[in-house]
Design a binder for these strands. Structure first.
Length: 799
DNA sequence: AGCACGCCGACT
DNA sequence: GTCGGCGTGCTC
């Protein structure tokens, strides 16, 4: 039997199956989807079995060394999905497989040197290396490698390549009775009279026939481990290592919730979904509901139905660690049937959650982007909450969009996909309008609570009238008012777009990174300037390096700065600040939110991370400090993102009995995305933005693909990009526009110059082949000259 | 990605 | 004469 194996070498030349003989003894274990260790040249590496064949064109086949799994980690569906991913994203097969699995299953490689003959066969100056051990790590022999290599050819030492698992299954020693209760009793009689500890242990097992963790047993009975050992030796007790899961929510109790009664609107929406569920068909729904309109309850009850039908469910949420409330809702309804996968977990914890899915111990997975690959085999429904979120697009290879994967998987399982949002992406909304997706509307908030009133404040006007602070007079008024009424406030700082940079007020000099074409960010905590792209650090300049002026200071507002200012204006206000600094510690996020919920603070101040999911009854005022910082980014989606963000943030106010108010501060009050977010008029915004997209040939009217070329030499990059652009032009139809070559918006990162070519097209069956040809053609130069070409067929970041 | 093989410059 | 630079090609 010959196995086709995809090897763990992410390179163009090795991006195909290699044939290996399956040793007879392994024929039962080696199945498609099993990871194996195979010899590859002089080394050993990991590979994935994708299929079998009885013949090979290749002579001199090698044998598979050993399997790494007893059961496949990728089932037939996921193997196929891997092929599809490879084709869609132009990535390597191996990368596609690895992205579908928890990182813990990625192999770790170790290179070692082993002494083969007696020490005295070795030149004297090398002997000390092997004094302690006959095997040392390759890096430990630094400086002697050349000599050792010579020894290796003589055979005194041998170079070993090892493939290691990254994470061990967590196992704990469990003890149980090996014989019957009666037998234990008779054996107890025969123990020496003074063997009281042993008798106590036997008594315990006579009472409790179940197995128990050794550590626990020892602490209950207060006996030494040797007592257990001797009973095991006598054959009365059984000692075994059982796999236990690292459960991140272990010590948490989730209050059980029951399905709520649905409103007439919810009822109407869910009936369509349930019908599709019952008919076993693939269909995509857009659940378009304003903030607080009860989308989650629809998710919960749809999943309920899927479970009742014996099926499973995937729920994607944007970066779930940021919404503990969401986890609570799912765990509350489905208890132990839920696995949670998000970036806040350690790789061991992620692996354990994944194992629960693989072993069919859960029915529902709630997680961020990569949870879309959960290895369920009987998927009944896929839900993508906050469908418009850009974090569903992976920004490195394979550059997939979870929404596309979801639809692909739903096609395989013939099940519904629900895309939920109050502010759908234009792509999705356009498809719903065309009838490709079925649109379900929830236009009203639950319990008919009115949407909050929104006021837009023109900060230029404030400035003209002499208010130079970052808070408008209206906002200060509002803050004071809520403090008095003991109501809560959310202050939102839109940081994306500009962070704190240092500029000279006299000459306009900006402190830039020497390696990247981007300004350095001021970090108050470490009193340093840092580059977000390459990590370069320097001190904060006290005088301008250009003109020696002392009027050099930082611009832009960080949350710390706002907190400080807030303290000056409203010293009595209790503020909780949420940003990367205060939430980096595990569980910090949740604790801060709990404190806020418990009323330990009046104001919650934060960045993007507080924009969604917050649902506290006492919030009656939401302030947006700077609405328009994103509008000026070189990104055709910036209006869309601004609109979405403002709408989401506004939705935090007045979700329960108390009416809500929103104050949006902006320097561009006339911009339609600000104006229309104030009235929460998505439909109007959609029309407006669609006109612009059509005029500029952007999605959803056109598809786009972005080729980015980078190298240390500008001229080389420019000329290569030029050749690529011309080539693409020659291969595509007249319908497509190929723009370039131009320098990327961030024209240099880590001293590499960056050029790009943007392709806008409607239908180009040749495109993928053309792009593949480019990668193939430049493959040599990519390895030998360090040229980088990255292709993103549906980019979300154009920088 | 590694690693070996192979063909040209500066050294004991 | 050889050590070693990294360009080229292969890995079942």
């Amino acid at each position: 039997m010959i196995a086709k194996v995809i090897v763990d070498v992410p390179a163009k030349q090795t991006d195909r199956a290699f044939d290996y003989l399956v040793p007879e003894s392994l024929e039962d274990v080696i199945k498609p989807g099993v990871r194996v260790i195979v010899p590859f040249g002089p080394r050993k590496i990991q590979g994935f079995v994708i299929g079998f064949s009885d013949r090979s064109e290749f002579t001199g086949l090698k044998e598979i060394i050993e399997p790494m799994d007893l059961t496949p980690v990728l089932n037939e569906e996921l193997l196929g999905l891997g092929d599809w991913l490879t084709e869609q994203t132009l990535s390597y097969k191996i990368s596609a497989f690895q992205v579908m699995l928890p990182a813990a299953l990625k192999a770790k490689y170790e290179k070692k040197i082993k002494l083969r003959q007696s020490m005295d066969q070795l030149p004297e100056q090398l002997q000390f290396l092997f004094e302690k051990n006959d095997t040392i790590l390759w890096n430990e022999a630094e400086g002697y490698l050349a000599q050792l290599q010579k020894e290796a050819t003589k055979g005194t030492v041998e170079v070993l390549y090892e493939v290691k698992e990254r994470v061990k299954k967590k196992k704990l020693k469990h003890i149980s009775a090996k014989v019957s209760k009666e037998e234990l009793m008779t054996q107890k009689e025969q123990l020496a009279a003074n063997a009281e500890k042993q008798k106590a242990v036997l008594d315990f097992f006579i009472e409790n026939p179940k197995s128990i963790e050794q550590r626990e047993l020892l602490s209950i009975l207060d006996v030494p481990a040797t007592t257990i050992k001797s009973l095991v030796k006598k054959g009365l007790l059984l000692e075994e290592d059982l796999e236990v899961y690292r459960d991140p929510y272990e010590d948490r109790v989730f209050e059980k919730t029951k399905p709520l009664t649905l409103t007439a609107e919810q009822e109407r929406a869910i009936s369509s979904i349930l019908a599709t569920l019952g008919e076993n068909m693939q269909k995509v729904f857009l659940l378009y509901g304003v903030t607080s309109s009860g989308k989650t309850e629809i998710y919960l009850q749809s999943i309920q139905r899927a479970i009742e039908m014996g099926k499973e469910a995937i729920v994607l949420v944007p970066e779930i660690s940021l919404t503990p409330q969401m986890v609570k809702r799912f765990k509350g309804r489905f208890g132990n049937e839920v696995a949670v996968l998000h970036s806040g977990l350690s790789s061991g914890e992620k692996y354990d959650e994944w194992r629960k899915i693989e072993r069919k111990e859960v029915k529902v997975v709630v997680g961020a982007r990569s949870a879309i690959f959960a290895p369920f085999e009987n998927l009944g429904i896929i839900i993508i909450d906050e469908e418009h979120e850009t974090s569903y697009k992976q920004e490195d290879n394979p550059r997939y969009h979870a929404r596309d994967v979801a639809i692909q998987r739903a096609n395989f399982h013939q099940c519904p996909v629900i895309l939920g949002s109050a502010t759908p992406s234009l792509e999705t909304f356009a498809r719903a309008q065309k009838g490709v997706y079925e649109q379900l509307n929830l236009p009203k908030r639950m319990n008919n609570q009115a949407l909050p009133s929104v006021e837009i404040i023109d900060m230029r006007e404030e400035l003209r009238e002499g208010n130079r602070s970052m808070f408008s007079r209206a906002l200060i008024e509002g803050l004071k008012d809520r403090l008095e009424k003991k109501q809560q406030i959310v202050l939102f700082l839109n940081k994306r777009g500009h962070s704190s940079f240092v500029m000279c007020r006299d000459c306009g000099y900006v402190d830039n990174c020497p390696n990247c074409d981007i300004s350095l960010t001021y970090h108050r905590f470490s009193q340093q300037m840092k580059c977000h792209y390459c990590g370069y650090e320097s001190y904060v300049p006290s005088t301008c390096p250009e003109c020696n002026s002392e009027h050099i200071r930082y611009f832009g507002t960080g949350t710390q700065k706002v907190e400080e200012e807030l303290g000056k204006v409203l010293p009595e206000a209790r503020v909780i600040r949420m940003d990367v600094d205060t939430t980096s510690r595990k569980g910090a996020h949740e604790k801060l939110l709990n404190d806020f919920q418990d009323g330990k603070a009046d104001i919650l101040l934060g960045t993007q991370m507080i924009a969604k999911g917050l649902d506290f009854p006492n919030i009656t005022l939401v302030g947006v400090l700077s609405a328009d910082t994103m509008l000026h980014l070189p990104d055709f989606r910036s209006s869309e993102k601004t609109f979405q963000l403002l709408t989401q943030v506004s939705g935090r106010a007045g979700r329960h009995e108390l009416p809500g108010e929103v104050i949006i501060q902006t320097y561009t009050p006339e911009h339609y995305s600000v104006e229309l977010a104030a009235t929460q008029n998505f439909d109007h915004f959609f029309e407006r933005e669609m006109m612009i997209r059509r005029a500029h040939q952007y999605p959803p009217y056109y598809y786009i693909a972005l080729i980015t070329v980078s190298h240390e030499n500008v001229a080389y990059v420019a000329s290569t990009t030029d050749k690529i652009t011309k080539f693409v032009q020659s291969k595509l139809s007249r319908e497509a526009s190929v723009l370039g070559p131009v320098a990327s918006p961030i024209s240099r990162i880590k001293n590499r110059y960056r050029y790009q070519c943007l392709i806008k097209y409607k239908r180009e069956p040749n495109l993928n082949q053309t792009l593949k040809t480019i990668l193939e053609h430049y493959q040599q130069e990519m390895v030998s000259k360090g040229l980088q070409i990255s292709i993103d067929v549906n980019p979300y970041i154009l920088m």
